[in-house]
Simulated assay, not measured.
Amino acid sequence: MTKLIADIKIPDSKLAAEAAELVREHTDDLLWNHSNRVFLFAAMRGNQNQMKYDAELLYISSLFHDLGLTPRFRSEDKRFEVDGANAARDFLRSRGVPEESIRLVWDAVALHTTIGIVEYKETEVALMNFGVGLDVVGKNFELISADARQKIVQAFPRNQFKQNILHAFLEGFKHKPETTYGTINADICDVLLPGYQRPNFCHHVLHSKWDE
């Protein structure tokens, strides 16, 4: 049965269903609901602007975007965004998805926190970033109607999301805080990780091995 939420259709192809099954298995309600809200906000914005986008790829990108935070998919030495992107790539390749589509999903997941760049990428990549920004920090909040927001949150509740998501982020990379250097995730380590000392780019430049 087709599922519509705030007039947005949840993709129900075999590929989309298998992606959802995998992600649901490895995420808790916090990340599952967040990922679905991201897709819905992203798709809604795309529809508002009459943008042409691949809903299936946008959905899969949204589902996988935080999967790198989870125990099954987090690495010891890569940014969590890259871990999620690699998981999406492996999933799609195992099902014979064309490489161009895989690259699009990889970029959407890997770049979703790279503010100032990701919004200028391909439509699906930029739209997913829109959904992430709206759901996490309320960016462009007013661009989605109160009625639509209510329907989306009713379907995928926030359940104290603001209080819980920062700790979920930290749990995904507290064992490798060095991977957050130069990203917004360093803010999380700075606030929540005891003993963390934030690297400074100026220090790296001034204390490089160049003799001058």
Score class of each variant (00 low, 15 high):
Ile8Tyr: 08
Lys52Ala: 12
Met44Lys: 15
Pro71Phe: 03
Thr27Asn: 05
Met1Val: 04
Gly96Arg: 02
Val136Asn: 14
Thr183Ser: 14
Val118Gly: 05
Tyr120Ile: 07
Glu171His: 09
Asp107Pro: 07
Arg24Ile: 05
Lys14Ala: 12
Ala126Tyr: 15
Lys52Ser: 12
Glu99Gln: 13
His112Ile: 13
Thr70Met: 11
Leu104Tyr: 04
Asp7Leu: 14
Ala87Asp: 09
Asp77Met: 04
Gly172Ser: 11
Val109Pro: 01
Asp12Lys: 08
Glu142Gly: 08
Phe169Ala: 05
Leu206Ile: 07
Pro11Arg: 01
Ala55Trp: 00
Leu4Ala: 01
Phe73Glu: 01
Leu4Asn: 02
Gly131Arg: 09
Pro177Ala: 04
Asp107Gly: 11
Tyr181Leu: 11
Val191Gly: 07
Gly172Trp: 00
Gln154Trp: 06
Val82Thr: 11
Ile60Trp: 00
Ser101Thr: 12
Ile10Glu: 02
Asn49Pro: 00
His175Asn: 08
Ser62Met: 05
Asp147His: 04
Tyr196Trp: 03
Asp77Pro: 01
Thr180His: 06
Arg45Ala: 07
Phe39Cys: 04
Val109Thr: 10
Ile117Phe: 15
Ser208Cys: 11
Asp77Phe: 06
Gly172Glu: 04
Phe64Ala: 06
Pro194Val: 07
Asn164Ala: 11
Ser75Asn: 03
Asp77Gln: 12
Leu92Arg: 05
Phe64Gln: 02
Trp210Asn: 09
Leu31Ala: 05
His203Ala: 01
Lys9Phe: 00
Glu100Ala: 14
Thr70Gln: 06
Phe73Gly: 03
Ser75Ala: 07
Phe130Glu: 09
His65Gln: 07
Ala6Gln: 08
Val97Glu: 03
Arg103Thr: 14
Ala155Ser: 08
Gly96Tyr: 01
Phe201Tyr: 06
Asn86Leu: 14
Glu171Leu: 10
His167Ser: 12
Tyr53Arg: 09
Phe80Thr: 03
Phe156Ser: 06
Leu31Gly: 02
Ala168Asn: 03
Leu30Met: 04
Gly182Lys: 06
Lys176Ser: 10
Ser61Tyr: 06
Asn200Met: 05
Tyr196Gly: 13
Ser13Val: 02
Leu166Ala: 15
Leu69Gln: 06
